[in-house]
Design a protein around this nucleic acid. Structure first.
Lengths: 331, 331
DNA sequence: GTGAAAGCGCTAACAC
DNA sequence: GTGTTAGCGCTTTCAC
């Protein structure tokens, strides 16, 4: 039913090898043959079957990007950057959402094992270091946005600790000394390193660390609401809050406003990521911007190098963050 | 380098046919052989190469979902529904984002032509009816959320006109008679039918249609800001606004608050879609909910039927909407 | 219940 | 510059 390379060859009066050469831009074809082939392709409306090509070449030129969610996150911007680079070098990016469920993440990895894709980029992965190291022995894998401690796997991310220090220093510079922290119980670097940054920034400024100013739960929106409930219930409320993600910051602001707190005056809030919602909210949300598109381009570029190389680059690359001040810190 | 079915056969002391039978759950294999095969698979850590399987079977069990964007939309919820159904019947869903660029959307369709995927679901497509009809002649294609007038292609969506009538009637029932409309210049059914619904609801209530209460531009966030600027600049402001999308409604509310308008009192605003941001905003946003996950499940179920059938179902299926009232309409 | 073998559509090595 | 052909890994028909 489907038209194949044989049909094109017959129509053009050449061999399948010549058709293949034209298809792949091999120049050892006379202009005359090439034109007949192109005409036949048009006439028959032929599209090469990539299943044949991929099987033969043992490659698909497709990279899978796995993320825990697509909404309210920086991931979609990262994919944009990934696609931009990939399309330049003839690769396609496909995405799969794991909903933060480990078994779902493990399941989509089948596309790697069964050779449907050439490599995988994991955004905010739930795999542990050991699993990742084992994976990386046999397949081309990279992490983006979020490293995993102990995983010797190609990674592109901001320096989370330094970025967090920068964020908290910004609050300190505005005169805040009672600074709350909304973190998570996750062991992801993006969570632990940012908490370390919070602590170290306080330390460097001579502000004592107080456990009651630290609220930890999950990355989910409702946890930000709970965090603000908690902080507002304290005898001595913080005058500023640093959250490890914009979504948590936005939730905290939401609840703060509901409780009548003047955000940016009584309590300043700073998030992390610079998702587009930060500008849509009122008050608009101050945050630490990650260079998403650049990270996406870079991780794909390195991963494709790995795919084509026998010696694997498993370094941890850091990219620059940027503090963005908006209404939620009184700017 | 990679372990193949041959290696497993050799290790288990059977033929490749037997291995294949075990792999595919064919029961015509003695328990003894089956166990030896399973042991060999485990021992060699074998995963079948799907490129071989797919080529042989002329199918991939993968469906591509194309959407203009992933953020601030109902699309991610639809994909969740699609995945839920697909995984039950052994299919995978992969997604691609077109950023609303026609050439990008056309480009990803290559995966259909080159047989990398078995079918495509288009969310908010930019293809015109003619292109879609031509596509549907040779491939398995479905639309979801957003039909295209004149396209005889399998579609699952809410009845946009009735849903819009319902939304506007809700505003009318609250006593509003000066009702603004934020639409788009798009010819998508989701835009035109909702505008028709707006008009018909007014008509049925005996409220004269006034062109100055209709603002049309694109689906982008800034257009919602502009719309509210426009309405607030009118000599006689509307007391309620119906927008064809939540994102436009949210933008309108944002600008309204900035301009000192009491949303839900002086001006009520109602969106469409019920994206999760509606509950995160302050005020929270009233809207028309689409049953996203159900739509996703249904469109995949119908599309897979089409893939396995020679006679193609190209009907337009409608699903029920639901009005959700929140603070932006004073609820 | 099992194996041999053809063949899915393509690329590339080789021969001319 | 071109054609012939082997073979990528798999499924499935057919024969036993």
């Amino acid at each position: 039913m489907s038209v194949t390379i044989k049909d094109v060859a017959r129509e053009a009066g050449v061999s399948v090898a010549t058709v293949s050469r034209v298809l792949n831009g091999n120049c050892n074809v006379s202009e005359d043959s090439a034109e007949r082939v192109r005409d036949a392709i048009t006439k028959l409306n032929y599209s090469p079957n990539f299943l044949g090509r991929n099987l033969r070449k043992c490659e698909t030129n497709v990279i899978l990007c796995v993320m825990p969610k697509s909404e309210h996150s920086l991931y979609s911007k990262i994919v944009t950057g990934m696609q931009r680079y990939a399309s330049k070098v003839g690769y396609d990016i496909i995405t799969a959402v794991s909903d933060g469920v480990p078994s779902a993440e493990a399941r989509v990895m089948n596309m790697l094992y069964n050779r449907t894709v050439d490599g995988v980029v994991l955004l905010g992965t739930l795999f542990d270091a050991q699993s990742l190291n084992r994976l990386a022995m046999n397949y081309d894998v990279a992490l983006c946005c979020d490293g995993v401690t102990g995983a010797d796997v190609l990674t592109v991310a901001v320096d989370d600790e330094i970025a967090a220090i920068d964020a908290v220093n910004t609050l300190i510079a505005k005169g805040h000394r009672d600074i709350g922290f909304i973190g998570t119980t996750s062991e992801a670097i993006s969570s632990t390193a940012r908490e370390n940054g919070y602590r170290h920034a306080l330390q460097a400024a001579g502000i004592p660390y107080r456990e009651e100013l630290v609220y930890r739960d999950s990355y989910e929106y409702p946890c930000g609401l709970d965090a603000m409930n908690y902080f507002c219930g304290l005898e001595k409320r913080p005058t500023a809050i640093f959250a490890v993600s914009d979504l948590l910051a936005i939730a905290a602001i939401h609840r703060g406003v509901e409780l009548g707190v003047k955000i940016g005056e009584e309590i300043s809030v700073m998030g992390f990521d610079n998702i587009s919602m930060c500008e849509m909210m009122l008050p608009t949300v101050s945050t630490v911007e990650q260079p998403c598109e650049k990270m996406g381009e870079q991780v794909i570029s390195k991963l494709i190098e790995n795919i084509h190389s026998t010696v694997k680059d498993n370094k941890y690359y850091t990219v620059d963050h940027k503090i963005i001040l908006r209404q939620s810190t009184g700017d």
